[in-house]
């Protein structure tokens, strides 16, 4: 499943888009950035409620396929712009982390 296919299936709102044809190979949920950076795998869809600029660096370093902001969280315009500059896929959803993860797991 590509990032674009996942975004469509989960009805996600696009905040920033890079390579949306990238394959999603797994998922990870978490808000403690050190924890995420150490444990998330390359190609994961990362579900979080964190929205500060540091998530862009963490997504870049951990090489996640996409960031999904749960619970209706969204990005400040400058953070969204930073994500676009770095080619990071970021989406927002009104659904909670548990629901999003369950749906992603079912799609994988």
């Amino acid at each position: 499943m590509t990032v674009a296919e996942m975004a469509c299936a989960l009805n996600l709102e696009e905040i920033a888009a890079g390579d949306t044809q990238r394959e999603v190979t797994g998922g990870y949920a978490g808000d403690l950035l050190s924890w995420v950076m150490g444990r998330a795998q390359a190609g994961d869809a990362w579900v979080t409620i964190m929205s500060n600029a540091n998530i862009v660096a963490v997504a870049t370093l951990a090489d996640t396929a996409a960031v999904i902001l749960a619970e209706g969280v969204t990005l400040e315009p400058e953070v969204a712009e930073l994500a676009r500059t770095k080619g990071i896929n970021v989406y927002s959803s009104a659904q909670d982390t548990f629901t999003l993860c369950a749906k992603i797991a079912a799609l994988l």
Partner: peptide, 12 residues
């Protein structure tokens, strides 16, 4: 509040 300070930095 920014998602840091979990005491994971040096161990990581």
């Amino acid at each position: 509040a920014l998602g840091f300070g979990a005491g994971m930095g040096l161990p990581n």
